[in-house]
């Protein structure tokens, strides 16, 4: 695969859920290229298909039309090759495993050697700032710490792609700011490709290299906004005119999507 082929490529993606109340058109004609090292945010009103799109990439959902490739393979082949780590909206740690045990779970399944497991667990715990909490059980940690542990779990096996579905949705503003900063630093250090679903405009602008605006019924992409902010972003960059300008464009994009619906 050469440098310029996209890591994730979606072409005219369609997905219709057959439900008892009739078909739901969750995705319509979605086309998108995500390049290596991109940090792409998906933003849009509830029910516009953000989660569905992420799940299609992860081969957890089968599209009814169009094609997707991940690392040049079908999503299912990519899944089998363990090409991505997936962070769900809820931390979803196993209550019967310690934090370490939870991070070890994918490593056990993928058959890593003991010493290497140890090494990786220590590394990702440090990466998400949870050193010293490895022996604790999930219920002994705050919600934000649990969410960081679930990110560590997704990082442990070092997939090149990280798919995150509203990982910070349930957290308060301050914790969220902190985790945003950490995530950005982590992305900078590891140069992973990240797909990130969010409802928050500032979060999307602060984190991403590109912001994908979606609209519902049927879910499609209405705008893709290039983020011109520098890669190095202190938290107070959010008060700069440039930041506000981009946030404004995202808001306009969202509003346009809504107007279409009425």
């Amino acid at each position: 695969m050469n440098e310029n082929t996209p890591v994730i490529q979606a072409r005219n993606l369609d997905l219709t859920f057959e439900t008892n109340d009739g078909p739901i058109h969750a995705l319509q004609d979605v086309s998108l290229d995500i390049m290596k090292g991109d940090f792409v945010s998906f933003i849009g009103p509830s029910g516009c298909g953000k989660t569905t799109f992420l799940r299609v990439i992860a081969a957890l959902e089968e599209p009814t039309g169009g094609t997707v490739t991940v690392n040049g393979m079908t999503p299912d082949e990519a899944r089998r090759a363990r090409a991505y780590g997936y962070v769900f909206q809820a931390a979803g740690l196993y209550p019967w495993r310690t934090i370490e045990g939870n991070i070890r779970l994918p490593l056990e399944i993928m058959g890593f050697e003991r010493p290497e497991m140890r090494e990786r667990i220590d590394r990702v715990l440090q990466l998400v700032d949870l050193e010293g909490f490895g022996k604790k059980f999930p219920w002994q940690l705050s919600g934000g710490m649990q969410q960081r542990a679930s990110i560590a779990r997704a990082l442990a096996f070092d997939a090149d792609i990280l798919l995150m579905d509203e990982p910070f949705g349930a957290l308060d503003e301050i914790v969220r700011d902190h985790l945003n900063e950490q995530l950005l630093r982590l992305w900078d250090k590891t140069s992973k490709t990240i797909g990130f679903v969010t409802h928050s405009i500032p979060e999307a602008v602060y984190l991403s290299t590109r912001i994908v605006v979606m609209s519902p019924r049927p879910g499609r992409i209405t705008d893709v906004i290039e983020n011109t902010l520098p890669r190095d972003r202190p938290l107070d960059i959010r008060d700069t005119p440039e930041f506000l300008e981009i946030a404004h464009r995202v808001r306009e994009g969202l509003r346009a999507g809504h107007a279409y619906e009425d």
């Binding site: 899944r79 769900f88 979803g92 399944i109």
Partner: peptide
């Protein structure tokens, strides 16, 4: 969600 998580790891049924 927990089953999906196992799927993303490509875990076998036994695992």
């Amino acid at each position: 969600m927990q089953l999906d998580l196992m799927r993303t790891y490509n875990a076998t049924q036994g695992q």
